[in-house]
Design a protein around this nucleic acid. Structure first.
Length: 877
RNA sequence: GGGCGCAUAGCUCAGCGGUAGAGCGCUGCUCUUACAAAGCAGAUGUCACAGGUUCGAAUCCUGUUGUGCCCA
């Protein structure tokens, strides 16, 4: 606990009277968050002596709003950075957004379309101005939502990929790559979106199985003809060859000849290419180098012409009857025309096959031959792979590494130019005599007649790839960069390995002279609904996390997500579960209220062990075990495990047992009560601190009230004191066993929970004598009086509880219960005997296991003896 | 077509060589002054199927079926 962590006068409630009987998140969350920000708890200091801990947020889109996937990952990143802050690190969680080139431009173009205008009416400069205006009005909705969630980010360091510093970083790296020969310009087949009118990268193409058609067409005449099959008949207008396998006897006579291309006046060559699969279809394929990547490759090998037959909107441009038709209209028109000519040999419809769609607008992607800028990824991807291979960067969970390697080791050159206006314009000028000049950030572009700048902009991920260091001030050598780079963890969904992770790795290693951008890549699964179905905006199962936060509080959403976070696995979430987490928050709330009402305190030293009760020693022993357990889980990104451990410790041990036992102690008063007040204060203090990174709001409210200190945000993270007390743990376990057994008897006998029953306790020979008051209180047992007659006698764990049920005992129920217990014990005995009678087991099983079985056998036999005696003592039915 | 993963209680998932677990749901009794958003007690599984390895398999291996994801 730091000395500075003192509450300023009257800033927070300080008495249990200020706590209502239910936790109402809406009443505290907003206030607490604003207070945290005002006090600067989340602002990192580059001049600090503390060791740094840094996470940069994977930048969300400026157009985006918070969905459950963000809420999930943010909860985990927040938990990591909050814990490290409490552990004494200079903890920085850096927020910001990317400019989302296509998505943002689409938004503004839509706005313009509503006004009956296009971006071309405005011109480039005015359009970009308009996008900035859009951003200031509508962009960044997610930032406000992050506050609702409680994200402890350093708002003073918020960055945007299009801001001045980051743009400078983009220009700097582009120039360096250009000078190193790692960016180049080339005409290639790229994925083109005929609606967005831009190139998109491979990973922006989503493949899905669509109903199409497979049409077999006869090319050529008579003996000199062959049949090709295609799903895209419209591209035949751009065919410049037919290819067959060189060893294919069926077509050998045609190789080297030219055949007639139907519907045109052209003839095309038949070429032999080993990449043709003779087994597939007819073994002959049409070749359209300008409209298919494989055909482009064939075209290169055989020096074929690449004939573009569509414009950028997918409209046929070839002179003739099909000119001006959209590509899909052209498809049916062309098939119709071929059918009339008797050239259709077969038609399969529907023919299900995989078709690429633009991830932004779902339009069918058109492979298109065009001039683009590329990053030569070879050496960059090699370095990115090696950094993981040689252990400098760890991937969690490790099983995901394979996917990372598969990607970086087989990466194609990266097309980075986009035919957009919103983005970083490529800093290349073309001169009147075909000069090409790349201009660095401090250089003057060439001026004069005939010089023009490249009109394309860079892929958004080009700038996102710089994020781990551009946000810290690079290319300037800033104090932030020195203090906080390399960052510690990049936490993101496994679906995003290719988008951010690989690019940040490549650029980080390249720009920072081989320094890794982050030490650990922590990959999460995807959030799904309560039936494991994928959530997406187009699905009705999509949930707005804000709705759940309104209904149950941010902590409830956070706890549910954290508790579902098994490494790498998908996280299902349903409203019932959020409700359950809300109930947990309320439980903590009320337990703390109870503690405050009974004078729990954190003031002063813990009472020495000899003045602690067994319950005190037991709960402190367990508390320290849990601290160690939680720490181990945190270090292994086991959020589900640590959340679950805290849930069960708090509820099942502290609230259900320690608090219940403390009621007896408090009622009795005296020194034991004082000791218990201090221990209860300690247990709650530590438990609240342990829970804080996951559920920051409720813990802040309760912890400040309990301790009278300033904030749990800046409290010290608990340390395992090393205290363990196995004897106390065993003693309380025995106590629990006795209480549970008698409660079960009461329930079997149909006694109402509150009904008082006279009972005689015989605790000799057990460690339970000091617990008699607690046992009587928890079991509603009255002292024996005149005329006490024990109608039931329960032996358990060496103790004996005799009850006077005034003859009302239900012997049949008791007999049934005992018979069932007996069957369990006998089964246990049988199994244990079978093992111990197996010589192979005795010879080969570890001693510890054999011991365990012997102990089980002993317990089972003792149970059998006890239960048999009990049964014998019951009167006949 | 290739690769990876998963099949455990009604649902969603842990466990991954030595007594089958959790949350929610379900059944019964309780408003016992921290909490009914709660308490107490209870029920529920040939751990997909078939082989194999082992003293011992939900757990390791092989195959089958079903299912999901990624890549082409």
């Amino acid at each position: 606990m730091t000395d500075t962590n003192q509450r300023p006068g009257g800033a927070a409630p300080s008495s249990p009277d200020d706590l209502p009987t239910q936790y109402v998140p809406a009443e505290v969350e907003g206030t607490l968050y604003e207070r945290w920000v005002e006090r600067g708890y989340f602002e990192a200091d580059a001049k600090s002596d503390k060791p740094p801990y840094t996470i940069v947020i994977p930048p969300p889109n400026v157009t985006g709003s918070l969905h459950l996937g963000h809420a999930f990952q943010h909860t985990l990143m927040d938990a990591l950075t909050r814990r490290k802050r409490m552990q004494g690190y200079e903890s920085l969680w850096l927020p910001g957004m990317d400019h989302a080139g296509i998505a943002t431009q689409n938004k503004v173009e839509q706005q313009l379309a509503d006004e009956g205008r296009s971006r071309h009416d405005l011109g480039r400069e005015a359009f970009v101005e308009r996008v900035w205006q859009w951003k200031s009005e509508y962009g960044g909705r997610i930032l406000g939502q992050m506050r609702r969630l409680g994200d402890g980010v350093d708002w003073s360091r918020e960055r945007f990929t299009m801001d001045e510093g980051l743009s400078r970083a983009v220009l700097t790296i582009f120039k360096r790559l250009y000078d190193d020969g790692l960016v180049y310009r080339a005409e290639r087949i790229i994925n083109w979106c005929p609606r967005c009118l831009t190139a998109i990268s491979d990973i922006e193409v989503e493949y899905q199985d669509d109903d199409g058609e497979l049409v077999s067409i006869r090319y050529g005449e008579g003996d000199d003809s062959l049949v090709v099959a295609t799903t895209r008949a419209e591209t035949m207008l751009g065919d410049t060859a037919v290819a067959v396998h060189p060893d294919d006897e069926r077509y050998r006579h045609l190789v080297g000849t030219r055949i007639k291309l139907p519907l045109t006046d052209r003839t095309i060559p038949v070429v032999a290419d080993a990449h043709v699969d003779p087994e597939f279809g007819t073994g002959a394929v049409k070749v359209t180098p300008a409209h298919d990547p494989n055909d482009f490759a064939i075209g290169q090998r055989h020096d074929l012409e690449a004939l573009t037959v569509m414009d950028e909107r997918g409209v046929i441009t070839v002179h003739g009857p099909f000119q001006g038709l959209d590509r899909f209209e052209a498809r049916s028109a062309i098939v119709g025309a071929l059918r009339e000519q008797g050239r259709i040999v077969a038609e399969k419809r529907p023919y299900v096959h995989s078709v690429g769609h633009c991830s932004r607008c779902k339009t069918t992607v058109e492979p298109r031959l065009s001039m683009q800028w590329w990053v030569k990824v070879g050496p960059l991807a090699k370095a990115a792979g090696d950094a993981v291979r040689d252990g400098r960067v760890a991937i969690h969970p490790a099983e995901m590494s394979r996917r990372y390697f598969d990607w970086v080791d087989n990466m194609h050159d990266w097309c980075i130019s986009r035919q957009l206006w919103w983005g970083h314009r490529i800093p290349v000028w073309y001169g009147p005599n075909d000069e090409v000049v790349c201009v660095g950030p401090d250089e003057e572009p060439p001026s004069g007649e005939g010089w023009t700048q490249e009109s394309d902009v860079l892929d958004t991920w080009f700038s996102s790839g710089l994020w781990p260091f551009s946000t810290l001030g690079w290319p300037e050598q800033t104090p932030d960069l020195a203090k906080f780079y390399p960052t510690d963890v990049l936490l993101t969904g496994h679906d995003i390995i290719f988008f951010w992770v690989a690019r940040m790795m490549m650029f980080g290693l390249y720009a920072m002279d081989g320094q890794i951008p982050f030490g650990t890549i922590a990959l999460t699964g995807l959030v799904r609904d309560e039936h494991g179905k994928k959530m997406s905006k187009s699905n009705p199962n999509s949930v707005d996390p804000l709705d759940w936060m309104d209904a149950y509080g941010a902590d409830a959403v956070r706890f549910t997500l954290a508790r579902g976070a098994n490494p790498g696995a998908d996280v299902p979430i349903g409203e019932d579960w959020v409700q359950g987490s809300r109930n947990f928050a309320n439980k903590i709330w009320n337990a703390t209220r109870f503690a405050l009402m009974n004078g729990a305190t954190i003031e002063g030293e813990l009472p020495p062990a000899e003045r602690q009760s067994a319950a005190d020693r037991w709960i402190l022993s367990r508390l320290n075990s849990v601290v160690a357990e939680v720490d181990a889980y945190y270090d292994d990104f086991q959020f589900a495990k640590l959340s679950d451990a805290l849930f069960h410790f708090a509820w099942d041990e502290v609230f259900d047992w320690y608090v219940e036992l403390s009621k007896t102690t408090f009622a009795a008063g005296g020194e034991a009560a004082n000791a218990s007040r201090r221990v209860l204060g300690e247990v709650l203090d530590v438990t609240l601190r342990l829970l804080h990174p996951i559920v920051p709001f409720v813990t802040e409210q309760l912890w400040t009230t309990l301790t009278g200190r300033e904030s749990v945000v800046i409290a010290e993270w608990p340390k395992d004191s090393g205290f363990r007390d196995a004897a106390a743990e065993a003693e309380i376990a025995t106590l629990q066993q006795v209480i549970t057994e008698v409660r079960r008897f009461r329930a079997d006998q149909g006694l109402q929970p509150g009904q008082r029953v006279p009972a005689r306790l015989t605790l000799d020979g057990t460690p339970l004598a000091p617990h008699e008051d607690a046992i009587r209180s928890l079991l509603r047992l009255q002292p024996v009086e005149e005329g006490f007659t024990a109608t039931a006698s329960l032996p358990v764990a060496g103790a004996r509880v005799e009850l006077d049920l005034s003859g009302a005992i239900d012997f049949a129920a008791e007999r049934k219960r005992l018979a069932k217990d007996l069957a369990v014990a006998e089964k246990e005995q049988k199994q244990a005997n079978a093992k111990l009678g197996n010589s192979g087991f005795l010879a080969k099983a570890p001693e510890k296991v054999v011991e365990g079985i012997r102990a089980r056998l002993a317990t089972a036999e003792a149970d059998i003896e006890r239960i048999t005696a009990q049964l014998a003592s019951l009167p006949e039915a």
